[in-house]
Design a protein around this nucleic acid. Structure first.
Length: 255
DNA sequence: AAGAGAGACAACCGCCGGCGG
DNA sequence: GCCGCCGGCGGTTGTCTCTCT
Protein backbone atom coordinates (compact mmCIF):
# COMPACT_ATOMS: atom_id res chain seq x y z
CA UNK A 1 0.00 0.00 0.00
CA UNK A 2 1.27 3.41 -0.72
CA UNK A 3 2.55 5.45 2.10
CA UNK A 4 0.93 8.79 1.55
CA UNK A 5 1.90 10.53 4.69
CA UNK A 6 -0.28 13.54 4.13
CA UNK A 7 -2.93 14.81 1.82
CA UNK A 8 -2.73 18.54 2.07
CA UNK A 9 -4.24 20.08 -0.97
CA UNK A 10 -5.09 16.80 -2.59
CA UNK A 11 -8.82 16.77 -2.18
CA UNK A 12 -11.16 19.21 -3.71
CA UNK A 13 -13.97 20.26 -1.50
CA UNK A 14 -17.07 18.17 -1.72
CA UNK A 15 -20.64 19.26 -1.60
CA UNK A 16 -22.28 20.09 1.65
CA UNK A 17 -24.91 17.65 2.82
CA UNK A 18 -26.34 19.28 5.85
CA UNK A 19 -27.66 22.71 6.49
CA UNK A 20 -25.89 22.61 9.83
CA UNK A 21 -22.58 22.21 8.02
CA UNK A 22 -22.92 25.39 6.03
CA UNK A 23 -19.79 27.41 6.46
CA UNK A 24 -17.74 24.51 7.69
CA UNK A 25 -14.66 23.57 5.75
CA UNK A 26 -14.43 20.27 3.93
CA UNK A 27 -11.83 18.46 1.93
CA UNK A 28 -8.16 17.98 2.60
CA UNK A 29 -6.76 18.96 5.95
CA UNK A 30 -3.99 21.52 6.14
CA UNK A 31 -0.88 21.16 8.26
CA UNK A 32 -2.14 23.94 10.49
CA UNK A 33 -5.46 22.22 11.08
CA UNK A 34 -3.65 19.00 11.91
CA UNK A 35 -1.47 20.82 14.37
CA UNK A 36 -4.43 22.51 16.03
CA UNK A 37 -6.31 19.25 16.34
CA UNK A 38 -3.31 17.40 17.68
CA UNK A 39 -2.54 20.10 20.19
CA UNK A 40 -6.13 20.20 21.35
CA UNK A 41 -6.39 16.44 21.88
CA UNK A 42 -3.01 16.23 23.57
CA UNK A 43 -4.20 18.89 25.95
CA UNK A 44 -7.79 17.82 26.58
CA UNK A 45 -7.89 14.21 25.44
CA UNK A 46 -10.18 12.38 23.07
CA UNK A 47 -13.94 12.63 23.18
CA UNK A 48 -16.13 15.71 23.33
CA UNK A 49 -15.70 16.01 19.61
CA UNK A 50 -18.40 18.63 19.36
CA UNK A 51 -16.24 20.96 21.44
CA UNK A 52 -13.21 20.74 19.21
CA UNK A 53 -14.46 23.08 16.48
CA UNK A 54 -15.46 25.57 19.16
CA UNK A 55 -12.30 25.48 21.21
CA UNK A 56 -9.55 24.62 18.78
CA UNK A 57 -10.33 27.14 16.10
CA UNK A 58 -10.78 24.44 13.50
CA UNK A 59 -13.68 25.26 11.20
CA UNK A 60 -14.79 21.69 10.65
CA UNK A 61 -17.57 19.47 11.90
CA UNK A 62 -17.10 17.14 14.87
CA UNK A 63 -17.16 14.10 12.65
CA UNK A 64 -14.44 15.38 10.42
CA UNK A 65 -12.24 16.13 13.44
CA UNK A 66 -12.84 12.72 14.92
CA UNK A 67 -12.11 10.94 11.67
CA UNK A 68 -8.93 12.89 11.05
CA UNK A 69 -7.67 12.05 14.51
CA UNK A 70 -8.60 8.38 14.44
CA UNK A 71 -7.41 7.67 10.93
CA UNK A 72 -4.39 9.86 10.65
CA UNK A 73 -3.15 11.86 13.61
CA UNK A 74 -3.50 9.36 16.41
CA UNK A 75 -0.14 8.08 17.72
CA UNK A 76 1.08 4.59 16.88
CA UNK A 77 -0.81 4.35 13.63
CA UNK A 78 1.02 1.91 11.44
CA UNK A 79 1.48 2.80 7.82
CA UNK A 80 2.71 0.94 4.82
CA UNK A 81 1.88 -2.49 3.46
CA UNK A 82 -0.02 -5.03 5.49
CA UNK A 83 2.21 -7.87 6.56
CA UNK A 84 1.39 -11.51 6.09
CA UNK A 85 0.47 -11.89 9.74
CA UNK A 86 -1.84 -8.91 9.53
CA UNK A 87 -3.56 -10.28 6.44
CA UNK A 88 -3.93 -13.67 8.10
CA UNK A 89 -5.45 -12.10 11.15
CA UNK A 90 -7.71 -9.88 9.10
CA UNK A 91 -9.07 -12.83 7.15
CA UNK A 92 -9.76 -14.81 10.27
CA UNK A 93 -11.38 -11.93 12.05
CA UNK A 94 -13.50 -11.12 9.04
CA UNK A 95 -14.82 -14.63 9.05
CA UNK A 96 -15.84 -14.27 12.64
CA UNK A 97 -17.03 -10.70 12.61
CA UNK A 98 -18.02 -9.89 9.05
CA UNK A 99 -17.69 -6.28 7.89
CA UNK A 100 -17.27 -4.97 11.39
CA UNK A 101 -14.16 -3.06 10.50
CA UNK A 102 -13.73 -1.25 13.77
CA UNK A 103 -13.73 -4.52 15.69
CA UNK A 104 -11.30 -6.07 13.24
CA UNK A 105 -9.03 -3.04 13.34
CA UNK A 106 -9.15 -3.07 17.11
CA UNK A 107 -7.35 -6.39 17.07
CA UNK A 108 -4.75 -5.46 14.49
CA UNK A 109 -2.35 -3.17 16.33
CA UNK A 110 -1.72 0.13 14.64
CA UNK A 111 -4.33 -0.28 11.92
CA UNK A 112 -7.46 1.80 11.65
CA UNK A 113 -10.90 0.69 10.57
CA UNK A 114 -10.48 2.77 7.45
CA UNK A 115 -7.18 1.06 6.67
CA UNK A 116 -8.69 -2.36 7.07
CA UNK A 117 -11.76 -1.46 5.07
CA UNK A 118 -9.73 0.06 2.27
CA UNK A 119 -7.40 -2.91 2.19
CA UNK A 120 -10.27 -5.34 2.11
CA UNK A 121 -12.12 -3.50 -0.61
CA UNK A 122 -8.97 -3.10 -2.66
CA UNK A 123 -7.24 -6.45 -2.35
CA UNK A 124 -9.53 -9.05 -0.89
CA UNK A 125 -13.04 -8.26 -2.06
CA UNK A 126 -12.35 -7.67 -5.74
CA UNK A 127 -9.96 -10.53 -6.21
CA UNK A 128 -10.57 -12.30 -9.41
CA UNK A 129 -10.60 -8.99 -11.12
CA UNK A 130 -7.49 -8.13 -13.05
CA UNK A 131 -5.26 -5.88 -11.05
CA UNK A 132 -2.22 -4.08 -12.24
CA UNK A 133 -0.29 -3.94 -9.05
CA UNK A 134 -0.35 -7.37 -7.51
CA UNK A 135 2.99 -6.74 -5.83
CA UNK A 136 1.36 -4.52 -3.29
CA UNK A 137 0.89 -7.67 -1.26
CA UNK A 138 3.82 -9.95 -1.12
CA UNK A 139 3.35 -13.27 -2.83
CA UNK A 140 2.87 -15.34 0.27
CA UNK A 141 0.28 -13.01 1.69
CA UNK A 142 -1.49 -12.93 -1.63
CA UNK A 143 -1.56 -16.68 -1.84
CA UNK A 144 -2.70 -17.01 1.69
CA UNK A 145 -5.34 -14.41 1.19
CA UNK A 146 -6.57 -16.58 -1.63
CA UNK A 147 -6.72 -19.48 0.75
CA UNK A 148 -4.25 -21.40 -1.31
CA UNK A 149 -1.65 -22.04 1.33
CA UNK A 150 -1.75 -24.83 3.82
CA UNK A 151 1.04 -24.10 6.21
CA UNK A 152 3.36 -27.06 6.77
CA UNK A 153 2.90 -26.89 10.52
CA UNK A 154 -0.83 -26.77 10.12
CA UNK A 155 -1.03 -29.83 7.96
CA UNK A 156 -0.21 -32.11 10.83
CA UNK A 157 -3.34 -30.95 12.63
CA UNK A 158 -5.73 -31.12 9.73
CA UNK A 159 -6.85 -33.70 7.26
CA UNK A 160 -7.01 -32.48 3.72
CA UNK A 161 -10.21 -34.07 2.63
CA UNK A 162 -10.18 -32.92 -0.91
CA UNK A 163 -6.69 -31.80 -1.88
CA UNK A 164 -7.39 -30.71 -5.38
CA UNK A 165 -4.69 -28.79 -7.13
CA UNK A 166 -5.28 -25.09 -6.86
CA UNK A 167 -6.25 -23.53 -10.11
CA UNK A 168 -8.45 -20.72 -11.24
CA UNK A 169 -11.16 -23.02 -12.46
CA UNK A 170 -10.85 -25.60 -9.69
CA UNK A 171 -12.59 -25.74 -6.38
CA UNK A 172 -10.12 -25.48 -3.57
CA UNK A 173 -9.46 -28.07 -0.93
CA UNK A 174 -11.63 -28.77 2.04
CA UNK A 175 -9.90 -29.27 5.34
CA UNK A 176 -11.00 -30.59 8.66
CA UNK A 177 -9.36 -30.54 12.03
CA UNK A 178 -8.18 -33.91 13.26
CA UNK A 179 -10.56 -33.72 16.17
CA UNK A 180 -13.44 -33.07 13.85
CA UNK A 181 -14.39 -29.77 15.43
CA UNK A 182 -13.80 -27.60 12.45
CA UNK A 183 -14.43 -27.87 8.78
CA UNK A 184 -13.61 -25.18 6.38
CA UNK A 185 -13.66 -24.59 2.70
CA UNK A 186 -10.25 -23.35 1.69
CA UNK A 187 -11.68 -21.10 -0.97
CA UNK A 188 -11.51 -18.44 1.71
CA UNK A 189 -15.22 -18.15 1.57
CA UNK A 190 -16.93 -19.92 4.38
CA UNK A 191 -15.84 -21.07 7.74
CA UNK A 192 -18.20 -23.62 9.14
CA UNK A 193 -18.24 -23.27 12.87
CA UNK A 194 -19.11 -26.36 14.70
CA UNK A 195 -17.02 -25.51 17.62
CA UNK A 196 -18.58 -27.45 20.44
CA UNK A 197 -21.73 -25.41 20.14
CA UNK A 198 -20.10 -22.00 20.23
CA UNK A 199 -22.04 -19.66 17.99
CA UNK A 200 -20.50 -16.86 15.96
CA UNK A 201 -22.45 -14.40 18.08
CA UNK A 202 -20.99 -15.83 21.26
CA UNK A 203 -17.48 -15.61 19.86
CA UNK A 204 -18.08 -12.02 18.89
CA UNK A 205 -19.51 -11.15 22.29
CA UNK A 206 -16.62 -12.88 23.99
CA UNK A 207 -14.02 -10.83 22.21
CA UNK A 208 -16.09 -7.70 22.64
CA UNK A 209 -16.04 -8.29 26.37
CA UNK A 210 -19.81 -8.48 26.52
CA UNK A 211 -20.07 -11.79 28.31
CA UNK A 212 -20.54 -11.95 32.04
CA UNK A 213 -18.42 -14.24 34.18
CA UNK A 214 -20.82 -17.12 33.96
CA UNK A 215 -21.01 -16.82 30.17
CA UNK A 216 -17.23 -16.60 29.96
CA UNK A 217 -16.88 -19.79 31.95
CA UNK A 218 -19.39 -21.46 29.67
CA UNK A 219 -17.52 -20.18 26.66
CA UNK A 220 -14.22 -21.43 28.01
CA UNK A 221 -15.69 -24.83 28.72
CA UNK A 222 -17.17 -25.15 25.27
CA UNK A 223 -14.17 -23.90 23.38
CA UNK A 224 -11.76 -25.96 25.40
CA UNK A 225 -8.67 -23.83 25.39
CA UNK A 226 -6.62 -26.93 25.90
CA UNK A 227 -6.55 -27.06 22.14
CA UNK A 228 -3.96 -24.33 22.41
CA UNK A 229 -1.42 -26.95 23.27
CA UNK A 230 -1.52 -28.14 19.70
CA UNK A 231 -0.43 -24.70 18.60
CA UNK A 232 2.72 -24.45 20.61
CA UNK A 233 5.40 -22.88 18.51
CA UNK A 234 3.13 -22.40 15.55
CA UNK A 235 4.42 -19.57 13.46
CA UNK A 236 0.95 -18.27 12.81
CA UNK A 237 -0.06 -17.69 16.33
CA UNK A 238 -1.05 -14.14 16.64
CA UNK A 239 2.09 -12.20 17.36
CA UNK A 240 0.45 -9.70 19.62
CA UNK A 241 -1.80 -12.04 21.51
CA UNK A 242 -2.95 -10.55 24.72
CA UNK A 243 -3.59 -13.88 26.28
CA UNK A 244 -3.85 -17.48 25.27
CA UNK A 245 -7.43 -17.05 24.18
CA UNK A 246 -6.37 -15.10 21.15
CA UNK A 247 -4.79 -18.19 19.71
CA UNK A 248 -8.27 -19.51 19.22
CA UNK A 249 -8.11 -17.54 16.03
CA UNK A 250 -5.27 -19.75 14.90
CA UNK A 251 -7.54 -22.68 14.45
CA UNK A 252 -9.54 -21.53 11.45
CA UNK A 253 -6.47 -20.06 9.86
CA UNK A 254 -4.50 -23.24 10.14
CA UNK A 255 -6.82 -25.23 8.00
C1' DA B 1 6.42 11.43 -24.23
C1' DA B 2 1.69 11.54 -23.67
C1' DG B 3 -2.86 9.95 -22.85
C1' DA B 4 -5.99 6.55 -20.81
C1' DG B 5 -7.35 3.73 -17.39
C1' DA B 6 -6.85 1.49 -12.99
C1' DG B 7 -5.36 1.65 -8.24
C1' DA B 8 -4.94 3.75 -3.66
C1' DC B 9 -6.77 5.96 0.07
C1' DA B 10 -8.40 10.14 2.57
C1' DA B 11 -12.57 12.00 3.46
C1' DC B 12 -17.56 12.46 3.20
C1' DC B 13 -22.39 10.68 3.74
C1' DG B 14 -26.09 8.71 5.96
C1' DC B 15 -27.69 5.77 9.29
C1' DC B 16 -27.87 3.81 13.96
C1' DG B 17 -27.96 3.29 19.00
C1' DG B 18 -27.28 5.44 23.46
C1' DC B 19 -28.38 9.01 26.45
C1' DG B 20 -30.42 12.94 28.65
C1' DG B 21 -34.12 16.32 28.91
C1' DG C 1 -42.79 7.83 24.71
C1' DC C 2 -40.72 11.54 22.03
C1' DC C 3 -37.12 14.45 20.53
C1' DG C 4 -32.59 16.15 19.78
C1' DC C 5 -27.74 15.63 20.29
C1' DC C 6 -23.74 12.94 20.16
C1' DG C 7 -20.37 9.38 19.04
C1' DG C 8 -19.60 5.73 16.15
C1' DC C 9 -19.81 2.89 12.14
C1' DG C 10 -19.93 0.95 7.28
C1' DG C 11 -20.49 2.27 2.60
C1' DT C 12 -19.22 5.23 -0.94
C1' DT C 13 -17.01 8.93 -3.47
C1' DG C 14 -13.48 11.87 -5.55
C1' DT C 15 -8.93 12.86 -6.81
C1' DC C 16 -4.07 12.06 -7.00
C1' DT C 17 -0.69 8.64 -8.38
C1' DC C 18 0.89 4.92 -10.89
C1' DT C 19 1.12 1.75 -14.71
C1' DC C 20 0.28 0.44 -19.18
C1' DT C 21 -0.03 1.15 -24.06
Amino acid sequence: MQNKSFSYGRMKQRGSSSSKDIGLKKGAWTAEEDMRLKNYIEKYGEGKWHLIPLKSGINRCRKSCRLRWLNYLRPNIKRGDFGEDEVDLMLRLHKLLGNRWSLIAGRIPGRTANDVKNFWNTYIQPRGKTRKNESKIDESSQQHAMGNIIKPQAQKNFNIVNPLPVADDNPLPIAAHDDGHLIRSLDDGVLYHDFNGVSDDMITEFFDGLLDDQAINEFDDKVGWSLDSSLNGDAFDVAQQEDSRTSFFSLPQMM
